[in-house]
Design a protein around this nucleic acid. Structure first.
Lengths: 217, 217
DNA sequence: CGCGTCGTATGATCCGGGTCATAAATAAAT
DNA sequence: ATTTATTTATGACCCGGATCATACGACGCG
């Protein structure tokens, strides 16, 4: 059992407390709230998009697998966040698959209702745009990293990014990075061993702190 | 002067003939059409976004430079395409810079007018979403490539992608790839030499055709 | 025309991070 | 409490693509 109740673990996408679409609106437009187990596949790469999705509880990972089993994580979504809209609105097959990381609840709404919802709710429509734009920002950032920077730079960038999402006011205070070495590897296009070695090196150089195996930054 | 009028060069983003926002609407919302030279910087990484942009004539490249001068191309925009909206709607600094690749004309509209336009034109608002979603699709694709595939796979993917954008109906007919080796390198996170060597290798293996130095696929 | 610039080409060398193997430390399960 | 699975750790080796140098080809321009 985890002992210390004091540890400041940070939620991965904390502003999810604010839902992209409020529950009341979801209900009004025929969305259904479905229970999901851990490791449940919500949709698969290549399939046609038919529904809008929003996390109510739990976490969802979007990922692609290459032929030799190597995974790349395209995104992780927490309560309040929607996901899988691009193929729905852009009219192309899913470029990645989605799987639940924990048991939880997921909102699901047919495309036609979703489109009607957007038409009738300008504010939500704008909120959606903001979400899409932030996602583009994230992808630009990662793409820049993966295309030209070394492991240390990539790790620093992603850690700082996630930290900045909690701390509205940038703080010197260290927080625990809520990812395993493997997860960091999958998000940055590195191998686990490389992440492990780089993290150790960064600790020696005082660029981060290790507390047990937890990374603090 | 370029001789042969028969060569089927393909436009980079051909459906740009359809403008994201029609000229009449742009005019109605205080957009100005400004003349630009070649190599003119439209905005720079880190700056605040204040305007909506749309190409009327010419081409625009969005790129990032890393400290040792290495460039990564985040996107190329042709007539009819809008660009630079994410920082405008997502409210964050420009993650990349934009520069014109040729002399041309660019529409420019203040943020406030743009927001009003979206509010009053649902169809255009949806069109914008489609554009943003397709851009996410592109980035997902490139990210998947850059994070796990070898040079040949990356080149094939990007060449096929651009080819598919012209040929509505997938065709066996070969077209000339309208990019230099350097441009392909900048879009795939490779070095020029690697692109050159890989292209030659692919020609030997019959995976593409070289006509002079032009790549046909 | 000849010159300058940009694009293409090719070889030699090097090294960062991937791969493989093996093990210790933690956490989870029963 | 003992087993089982997951995560972290470390060393040895290797190789693909980056880097550097150098040259040739193509094309637009005065």
């Amino acid at each position: 059992m985890r002992s210390s109740p004091v540890i400041q673990y940070f939620p991965i996408f904390p502003e999810k407390r604010k839902r992209v679409i409020p529950a009341s609106v979801l209900n009004a437009y025929n969305a259904r709230l479905v229970k999901v187990d851990k490791d449940q596949i919500l949709f698969e790469e290549g399939r046609q998009a038919l529904d809008f999705f929003q996390v109510e509880e739990g976490k969802v990972k979007m990922y692609v697998l290459n032929p030799d089993g190597q995974e790349f994580t395209q995104g992780i979504f927490s309560p309040g966040e929607s996901f899988g809209e691009p193929p729905l609105l852009g009219d192309f097959p899913y470029p990645s698959s989605a799987i639940t990381l924990e048991p939880g609840k997921i909102w699901r709404m047919p495309k036609s209702d979703f489109l009607r919802l957007l038409k009738e709710n300008f504010d939500i429509h704008m909120k959606l745009d903001q979400v899409l734009c932030r996602r583009l920002q994230y992808k630009s950032m990662i793409l820049t990293e993966v295309s030209s920077y070394d492991p240390e730079h990539r790790l620093l960038t992603i850690i700082k990014y996630f930290k900045s999402k909690i701390a509205k006011h940038p703080s010197r205070e260290k927080v625990i990075v809520p990812f395993t070495r493997q997860q960091l590897a999958d998000m940055t296009g590195l191998r686990v061993e490389t992440v492990i070695r780089t993290v150790k090196k960064m600790e020696k150089e005082g660029k981060l702190v290790l507390e047990g195996h937890k990374i603090k930054f």
